[in-house]
Structures are given as C-alpha cells and as structure tokens.
C-alpha cells in the first residue's frame, strides 16, 4: 500500500502535520464536551460522547502514526545519526525528518493525555 503515499514530500509544512492533528483533536474534545454538557446532543447519553471522543482519538493517533512513518522514512529509517547540521540538501531533509518524527512522538502522547478524561469521567457537572 506504500505506493499510495508520495515518494517524497519536500515541504516544510509536513513538519507540522502531527501538531496540527493534536490541535484539532484538542479543539474537538473540548468543544464536543462543552457543547454536549451545555446543550446536549439529540438526547444522546454521556457514553455517546465518550465513544465519539474515543473514535476521534483513534483517527488522530492513526494520522500521527502515518506522519511519523513518513518522517521516519524521510530520516532514512534511522540510518544516520543526528545532528544533521551540514549545509546540504540531504542534511536538511534528514533533519526535517528527524524533527518531524520527534514532534509526532510528542503529539501522540499529548493526544492520549487530552483524551484520558473521557476514560474516567462519567457525566457532566451541571
């Protein structure tokens, strides 16, 4: 299936994929909980909210894992060691791949932390 993915993405923007997913997931969780607790959602129960947050979390984690895989590939699957600080195109690519991979790791953990309350809380505080 890997041929579906572009061979190489040479853009600075891929660096931000995982943090953007993290931000979107964060916003969704907080908005969904706030709107649900204030207005309700067509009579759905609190477990529906928890399930929705769970599904969105899975999707976000999948996207981050994909971004991490692409970054890992860009980094040459870890064949070279950092810091990749030569003024060359190759080192720029490797550096960006490595930085993206680290950011993906951070975002992965952050998304889980954002979603953890949904695992423990059992109702809105009205």
């Amino acid at each position: 299936m890997w041929h579906l993915l572009p061979k190489e993405v040479e853009s600075l923007w891929t660096l931000f994929t995982a943090p953007v997913v993290w931000a979107a997931h964060f916003l969704f969780c907080y908005l969904a909980a706030a709107v649900y607790c204030e207005k309700g959602f067509f009579g759905a129960g609190f477990d529906t909210l928890r399930l929705t947050i769970g599904l969105v979390t899975m999707a976000a984690l999948a996207m981050i894992v994909l971004a991490a895989f692409l970054a890992w590939r860009q980094w040459g699957f870890g064949t070279g060691d950092p810091p990749h600080d030569d003024p060359s195109r190759r080192d720029r690519l490797l550096f960006q791949g490595y930085a993206t991979l680290l950011l993906s790791g951070l975002s992965f953990v952050a998304v889980i932390f954002t979603a953890l309350p949904a695992l423990f809380l059992t109702g809105c505080l009205r």
């Binding site: 932390f113 953890l116 695992l119 423990f120 809380l121």
Partner: peptide
C-alpha cells in the same frame, strides 16, 4: 510517570464531585 499520575488524579475526580 505522568500517565500514571494523570490517570490517578482523573480517577479521583468523579468521587470528588459526587452529584
């Protein structure tokens, strides 16, 4: 460690707000 601490604190929350 942070996951464990966060889980512990979140796990306490429903019993700290028992309505």
């Amino acid at each position: 460690v942070l996951t464990a601490l966060l889980s512990y604190a979140l796990w306490l929350m429903p019993s700290l707000r028992p309505f």
